[in-house]
Design a protein around this nucleic acid. Sequence first.
DNA 1: CTCCGGAGGTGTACGCCGTACACCTTCGCC
DNA 2: GGCGAAGGTGTACGGCGTACACCTCCGGAG
Lengths: 252, 252
Amino acid sequence: MSSDRAPRPAPAQSDATAEAARPAGRARLSRGLVLRTAVALADRSGIDAVSMRRLAQELGVVPMALYKHVANKEELFDGMVDVVIGEIAPPCEDSGWKQAVRRRVLSARQTLLRHPWAPQVIESRTAPSPAVLDHMNSLIGTFRAGGLSADLTHHAMHALGSRMWGFTQEVFPTAPPPADPELREIVFRDLAVRYPHIVEIATAGAHDPGSVVGSTCDDQFEFEFALDLLLDGVDRLHQRSWSSAQARDRDG
Amino acid sequence: MSSDRAPRPAPAQSDATAEAARPAGRARLSRGLVLRTAVALADRSGIDAVSMRRLAQELGVVPMALYKHVANKEELFDGMVDVVIGEIAPPCEDSGWKQAVRRRVLSARQTLLRHPWAPQVIESRTAPSPAVLDHMNSLIGTFRAGGLSADLTHHAMHALGSRMWGFTQEVFPTAPPPADPELREIVFRDLAVRYPHIVEIATAGAHDPGSVVGSTCDDQFEFEFALDLLLDGVDRLHQRSWSSAQARDRDG
DNA sequence: CTCCGGAGGTGTACGCCGTACACCTTCGCC
DNA sequence: GGCGAAGGTGTACGGCGTACACCTCCGGAG
């Protein structure tokens, strides 16, 4: 415990060492356990309380032990986001696209309300994780199944960003595609298989199908699209003298 | 430099000390200078580069010197947000409310694009600063001047949140009002003078005018309001076979 | 002019943080 | 039984926010 530095002469004082190495009942660490514990800690004490040291303590383990399961703190956050995304209810395609999307978005909101730290963490990610891409892909699928054009769906998704995630942004900075054209082709095919809907709407209206990942869309246009949707909607309500009281009455 | 702890016997070795105390040309520190430098640093190197130590170095000063001008790092962030908000163009009431709001929101977006770190920092504040309240107050004023009801304006403001700030949220957690009713009355009057429009829409439809600061509004309702505005708008575009190409053509 | 008080700036120290690196222990497999 | 990898430990480093005691300088009152 105290001072000797040279290669330990005595290999094991079995009881003290054993207790230190595995305090009786503690389960073996695993990536999943680490992530779930981190999420629970963030829920309970806020995202700032999630430090490697505090989390390790929570798990009854030394801080460095975590690094066998997550590469670093950024990757820990990535994993936590995936856990949260995984809690969003899967799509249910019973009624029309509008109801289906509405339900999905409201479910996402409920999930994020359970994890108030999540929007901030999601927003700080530099790239969307597979879980995020899956979620988007299936939501796009719902629009498309409802008959909306790829083009309109594309803009609708941008407009909905703020509703789904609890924040809006130039959503993900979308890293530039690899320079090597051959490699890019491979990556592209891979994406198309895994996230066909995303690739479809990303390329809709784009001339160069290879530039999916690059910013094929005009952020200013997307912003104004969503803004005008809202302003025009408000205007329409204004013109028909809408009031929240009557709205509440109508749909209970 | 090294070891003596007792009250210094020699009061001043004038040249070395003088150089340390004021390196010739450096301007005197001030809150404004500190904040502007912090904003510039964040713009240049990202918000994570804004540490008290780095910022002090930027200013040619020892870290603790900053604490004479900002209470702590949180207050530094608060101040940085105010600097950014101050850059948003003031309202111009020439055309109708819709144009006026549109312009203002687009101006806010331009400002936030210049300071990509800002949305994240704004989102992490626990209370809205006076600058934020001023901005909101005047935007509400624009709606009201255009003839919209306080009620509709209230919901429109919630819906626009995401467009104005680059993120949406249960916008500000709005700290509970002081328990002492007398004190609360004073705070309330104060708010009504400084932010009349905010108070008006906050109390619109609320039965107890004293509970302004408390959550008089139903977050779930606000969320669905904005969501339906978007979904209905998309639906309408879908039904008239809207496409982005023709939209771009129409308004150049 | 002197004196003094307070505002502005300094230096040291503390307890956190993420994580590199070398090590030891344990487990699963041959 | 032995061995290599996977899992866990311990130490150490540099950076962080900031408490606290100090020093210095400036402006105004006497």
